[in-house]
């Protein structure tokens, strides 16, 4: 049975594409047949982060419009077996996506025996984002430790409970929180929310914490997902995340921060801001 996973956030630039690339790569490294679909029509980023931009001939929209077959459009990763990418179009807009077309593509991947279908959502809560979440079985909600990102994630969690096919059949999309770009030092100084505060505000299980890391930017520029360089801290974090996702228990790392409530800082201990 294939699992459809949407990587979503509401807010832009929080690490959805980075997460899609790394989680897809990590699952494929474990031997799962995995495809990552770029729903960010008009921007096209996933192929860059995964280093296959020069091999894009046809894209997701071509398949939806039946201008190309799935076989023609899907790119097989050169480094990792079992890993595939369906790139987005750079020339169309998000209205090119429709429920019927997206549903057909997802069904074709299911029929082709993929274990995981990862949907990299665009930012926002408009059509593109709704299309990316509509067929999801599970959602990875990517959040940065700041108030606006948490608020947007909350919004998206509401949409996942209302605007998905699961809901129409009386089920719920299983949700996971992924806290990215986490900098414990800045949390300690009160410049960022701590993981405990984010968890309390969103109330969904924590899949993992990805530290703020220079290695991520370098990896994206090279077109090699950071998870392929196990010496990097962010790679370790993503390896943990993928292991937990397939059911392994691993203790949380990268969150060494004194526990202090957001509200106690806001209302109780004004001196804490001085850091």
């Amino acid at each position: 049975m294939s699992k459809v996973i949407v990587v979503t956030s509401g807010k832009g630039g929080v690490g959805k594409t980075t997460t899609s690339a790394n989680v897809a790569t990590g699952l494929a490294l474990l031997g799962y047949r995995t495809v990552a679909i770029d729903f960010d029509v008009g921007l096209r980023n996933l192929d860059l982060v995964m280093g296959c931009e020069r091999r894009v001939v046809y894209d997701f929209v071509n398949v939806i419009k039946k201008e190309a077959s799935l076989r023609q459009a899907v790119i097989r990763d050169k480094r990792v077996e079992n890993l595939f990418i369906l790139p987005a179009s750079q020339t169309r807009d998000k209205d090119a996506l429709d429920v019927e077309g997206v549903g057909r593509v997802i069904e074709d991947f299911r029929a082709a025996q993929f274990d995981y279908i990862i949907c990299d959502s665009p930012a926002g809560i408009e059509r593109g984002a709704l299309m990316a979440m509509y067929f999801a079985d599970e959602a990875i909600v990517v959040t940065n430790p700041e108030v606006s990102s948490v608020r947007d994630s909350d919004r998206v969690l509401g949409l996942l409970d209302a605007k998905t096919r699961k809901v129409e059949t009386g089920e719920r999309v299983k949700t996971h929180l992924l806290l990215t770009r986490y900098a414990p030092g800045r949390v300690a100084k009160g410049e960022m929310l701590g993981y405990a505060d984010v968890l309390e505000l969103l109330g969904i299980p924590l899949l993992g914490v990805i530290p703020e890391s220079k290695a991520v930017l370098q990896a994206s520029n090279l077109g090699t997902p950071v998870i392929l360089d196990p010496t990097a801290d962010a790679a370790q974090a993503y390896l943990d995340v993928v292991a937990r996702f397939v059911g392994e228990e691993r203790p949380q790392r990268f969150l060494d921060v004194p526990k202090r409530g957001f509200f106690s800082r806001l209302f109780g201990e004004p001196t804490a801001y001085a850091g």
Partner: peptide, 8 residues
């Protein structure tokens, strides 16, 4: 019984 989320 479920959380009421932002925007709802």
């Amino acid at each position: 019984t479920q959380p009421v989320r932002s925007g709802q």
